[in-house]
Design a protein around this nucleic acid. Sequence first.
DNA 1: ATATGTCGTGAGACCGGTCTCTTTATATCG
DNA 2: CGATATAAAGAGACCGGTCTCACGACATAT
Lengths: 356, 356
Amino acid sequence: MEDSAHPKRAVTVADVAKAAKVSKATAARVLGGYGVVSAKITDRVMAAAAALEYRPNELARSMSTGRSGIIGVVVGDIENAFFSLAVRGISDAARLAGFNVIIANSGEELDAEKSAVDLLIGKRVDGLIVTPARCDSFDHLQHVRRAGVPLVLFDRAIPELDVDAVTGDDRDAAIAATRYLIGQGHRRLAYVSAMDAEGGGLANIGRISNSAVRERVEGFVSVLTEAGLPNPLHYVRLGATNQQQTDSVIKRLLSDSAAPTALLASDSLVGLRIFKSLQSLGLSIPKDVSMISFLDADWTNVTVPPITIVDQRVYEMGKLAGERLIARIERTPLAVERLRVSTNLVVRGSVATIGR
Amino acid sequence: MEDSAHPKRAVTVADVAKAAKVSKATAARVLGGYGVVSAKITDRVMAAAAALEYRPNELARSMSTGRSGIIGVVVGDIENAFFSLAVRGISDAARLAGFNVIIANSGEELDAEKSAVDLLIGKRVDGLIVTPARCDSFDHLQHVRRAGVPLVLFDRAIPELDVDAVTGDDRDAAIAATRYLIGQGHRRLAYVSAMDAEGGGLANIGRISNSAVRERVEGFVSVLTEAGLPNPLHYVRLGATNQQQTDSVIKRLLSDSAAPTALLASDSLVGLRIFKSLQSLGLSIPKDVSMISFLDADWTNVTVPPITIVDQRVYEMGKLAGERLIARIERTPLAVERLRVSTNLVVRGSVATIGR
DNA sequence: ATATGTCGTGAGACCGGTCTCTTTATATCG
DNA sequence: CGATATAAAGAGACCGGTCTCACGACATAT
């Protein structure tokens, strides 16, 4: 066994060239698949390469060509089904175009996001897809553009940044869900999100630093206002970041003198937590409380009752973002756009019809 | 706006050096954080770097140091909660040690796995964690070792390959689950997996090309045999790769003259499919059929009844694999081992007690 | 037969870092 | 005060590819 002893310097084009008794340039032409080489020499080089088990050093290749063939993706949390589905969409689009994907987690934290972006730029990715943790802090993204690296935002838009964004149609989705609830006779509706409630509570919708959440809340509030329901902001609750927090959010909400009869969950993780909260409070869905969750997650259709959801078509979103980025990388002339993927309300059994 | 017009050649150490009026070597020392440089010059270089917005080219750095700071991970399917949890474990271990992770999907297909491995080797990853799609075909993995790249297998072991593997304690897990079912009075038990049933059916347990599944089946069969139950192999069914296939597997199983009273699902995806199959057949769990699933997936504890599961502690598995790989990369002297992460049977409500 | 063109090959610069080796400047010592 | 040690800075090779350019051989044109 002569393995770890000899770290065995990797086989290079020069080695192959020597073995095939040709110049380095010629061997490189054959192995790199460019330029013109005679059939005879091609065979000889290929044979030598096979014998030596040559594997090209993509690093070196990237350095001279300036292209890495990698696209970088910065997501909030891969463990979240929303992102893992999106990543699959992105990966599929990437693979189709011959690109590979490198994924970094930001944990929805700005600092982690910044260093992830820096790192990926350092690795000379050909393009970047970022889910910005906050839409009000984007110096680092500005820098990406100045560095000449194509960028596509995912799930959240930053209008101040002159760059493509692929998002869901969050406002419309919230409007549709809220209208549906009102149509079923609900009059007191709450929106629950996992966003950090910085500065305690919700003074100003415009302040919400995540555009997806902001737009959903705007849609939600606009429908309530339009329907003449009082004090819609009162029913928007942030901070459902974990089970315990969610339990307390829900408990507080439901012990209100005018407790909501229906809850709208901002994402499937919050939805699951709400479901568990209600379960542990011994409340039945939809008899005691109705709910709608965003994202068609696994768990939502094996519960009793199955959960009515807003299908965000995340795979398509991811795929679209990937395709858009690749078009940018390949310098396809396109106007900067915000691409909205429309959503679908999937009615299942978690909303009761009340009143008459 | 002068962006895409001037692709703006990236700022290099040479540029910074010129701006700071020092040699390239000195600038590199400051920027690379090695060697000795006086405080005065350090400041000057840093100032120049900041002014020019210098960002190191990690590619070039990797090329000269020979280290990329990246570990490659080849998984079966990121969308599967099993793998996304594992990836988080791996990422956490990697980040702690200053490594980054690049993920590739094999879709559980050998060819895709081979090309993913080749690609990652080409990118000069410092190490590789692979979930081998098949344990009986490993030339490409042998090549990884010959290339001197540290390798750790994940979830499945290949004894013929002299390399570390981190797996669950699959045999024991299956034994525990099966014993539990027998203890609850079940006498006819079935094991259902999503493995492709090549060659139709299950002639020979040893033939199962996925060691995790094989060991579980072995554990399952051994308990049944030990308990003197007849024809255990009859109840091992493969091919539950999607909902439709699963429906037909379950239907066939339950229409048997000696239909099983309990089902063991090989992973949480199969478990979910089985749950839906039973639901659509109008069968109630656990009254009509009992079931146990592997993996503590989200959905398993919001169903009615909640599903009894085998907790595989996947995050720990991932973390362990990451740590092991990093130890290898850092040349820590260690014997080649198979690390087994023990599992836990979590009893919830999906298994009925029968008989008296 | 000489000029022109094309094709295949070789030589060597280049990408942007790291790192070794050499040179220069300053400090320490007898 | 000169000799030697030591710290700091510079020069340039190197990593493994790509790619431009130069060159020789042969084919075609004149």
